[in-house]
């Protein structure tokens, strides 16, 4: 594991997703992941700046990369981690395209120079928080920190879009059927459902552009979780969390449904298993209160859904073929 990461919280974690920020710091401390905030970082432009102007959008993102490159790394490899999927995508995309296109790199650097900055494509390795936890820290170390296993809690692992797609760095190589979050949650003792829409889209900013489009996408995610009797959906992006949590009441109104599924960040779920109090990891800031489902956590693992013996049919089964065992020498 790298001994230090530049930490890019992004605008959402400052306020709307404060719970993600708090729980990230909690978990990082427990796991010995050293995070140092990128000094004076700016917004990544989300999905908006690229719609207005290309070069300024890349330059906006690149300022953050340049600031991260300029931190004191003692000659070591530079790593940056972003917990927000959209920030992660924009940072890794800018780095990737600058490396791919010398023309873009030259123009971005000409713009950065107006602010006395420079970025060398490839200088900073951009991570999403999930891959730092599962790849750099590893499941074993996570498991060692578990003091309160989440026995009996049924969770839906929700990856959303941008962490496993487009995956410029080939970290996951599983754009549609990733399993690392599933495995992480299982390592915490939770019961992980096989969530069929784990990489479907939450609608992103469509709640603001065309609400009907967005509500339908959110409904699908809630319905699948409800069908599989999930107690909570576990998210790893502030936009996903806000759409599923903040718009759940509206989905219910719009479709006449009655979903009450809390949406937690994966770092909050980790914090719970590490023995944090709900307050320490920002639980209570959700619109759909998560505290009631936390009462489901039990002392012991649930009995593996007792295997029910299938009733045999009355009729006699077909006779088994005779086994010739001469070549084994056993008779």
């Amino acid at each position: 594991m790298p001994n230090r990461y530049a930490y890019y919280p992004g605008c959402s974690l400052e306020k709307n997703a404060r719970a993600y920020h708090i729980s990230t710091l909690y978990v990082a401390e427990k796991l010995g992941v050293a995070l140092e905030e990128v000094p004076d970082w700016n917004c990544c432009g989300a999905t908006e700046y690229f719609a207005i102007a290309a070069l300024p959008a890349y330059a906006l993102v690149a300022r953050n990369l340049a600031l991260a490159q300029g931190m004191d790394w003692n000659g070591g490899q530079r790593h940056l981690v972003a917990p927000c999927s959209a920030c992660f995508l924009n940072l890794s995309k800018t780095d990737h395209y600058m490396a791919d296109s010398p023309q873009l790199a030259a123009q971005v650097n000409e713009a950065l120079a107006a602010g006395g900055l420079h970025y060398d494509p490839g200088a900073v390795f951009v991570h999403h928080l999930l891959d730092v936890i599962v790849d750099d820290v590893g499941y074993e170390k996570v498991q060692e920190m578990v003091t309160k296993p989440l026995f009996g809690l049924r969770v839906a692992p929700y990856y959303g879009c941008l962490v496993t797609r487009p995956d410029y760095k080939h970290i996951h190589n599983e754009p549609e059927h990733p399993f690392c979050l599933d495995d992480l949650l299982a390592a915490l003792g939770a019961t992980v459902i096989d969530y069929p829409v784990k990489t479907a889209c939450c609608g992103g900013h469509m709640t603001q552009i065309s609400e009907d489009t967005a509500l339908e996408l959110i409904r699908r995610l809630l319905k699948a979780a409800a069908d599989y009797r999930a107690d909570a959906i576990v998210a790893l992006c502030p936009m996903c969390q806000l759409n599923l949590d903040g718009y759940q009441a509206q989905v219910n109104k719009h479709f006449g449904t009655d979903y009450h599924i809390p949406i937690l960040y994966f770092t909050q779920v980790m914090g719970l298993a590490f023995g944090a109090t709900p307050e320490e990891i920002g639980i209570g800031k959700e619109f759909v209160d998560a505290r009631p489902v936390l009462n489901k956590i039990q002392e012991k693992p649930p009995e593996e859904g007792k295997k029910r013996r299938k009733k045999r049919r009355d009729k006699q089964a077909l006779p088994m073929p005779e086994l010739l065992r001469t070549h084994t020498g056993r008779k």
């Binding site: 102007a53 070069l55 300024p56 330059a59 906006l60 300022r63 123009q107 120079a113 107006a114 602010g115």
Partner: peptide, 15 residues
């Protein structure tokens, strides 16, 4: 500093 960078980027893009 950020505004100078964005201004320059806009110029380069001819916007």
């Amino acid at each position: 500093q950020l505004q100078a960078i964005l201004q320059k980027a806009k110029e380069l893009e001819g916007k």
